[in-house]
Write a protein that binds this DNA or RNA. Structure first.
Length: 112
DNA sequence: AACTTGACGTGAC
DNA sequence: AGTCACGCCAAGT
């Protein structure tokens, strides 16, 4: 019966990418998480690079703006400087504060 | 349907 | 400071 192309384990449908989406969506408002931190929370943990790639395809259902660099900076800035501005607006709107260096205060807002 | 190209970080050496 | 490797996905050709 049904077999061959069927996936017996539901977890198979829960790929690493899906894990990342779930984790990012689980970030509460007013908090941020770094790429590597998100990947480290997934199972199994993956490199921050992979997270960045996946983030490039995240659906609008995912608060991608809550994901920042490890230092709290916005690495997306080099890909879409305008987008980084939008991200900052989003974070500020959620009570997240930035440093004079243009980076988010991970010390207080990093969920990790 | 298969192959090619583009793409957002991070840690270790 | 520069280089290397990591579970990637999707659109275009």
């Amino acid at each position: 019966m049904k077999s061959s192309s069927e996936s017996p384990d539901a977890e198979s449908d829960d790929t690493i990418k899906q894990q990342i989406f779930k984790i990012v969506r689980a970030i509460p408002a007013g908090k941020v998480l770094s790429y590597g931190a998100v990947g480290a929370r997934s199972t199994p943990p993956i490199s921050g690079y992979i997270c960045g790639r996946i983030m490039g395809v995240v659906p609008p259902d995912v608060p991608w703006w809550r994901v920042v660099g490890k230092e709290g900076n916005l690495p997306i800035r080099k890909r879409n400087p305008e987008l980084s501005i939008q991200q900052r607006e989003k974070l500020v709107a959620e009570s997240v504060k930035f440093d004079e260096n243009g980076k988010v205060k991970m010390a207080e807002f990093s969920e990790d």
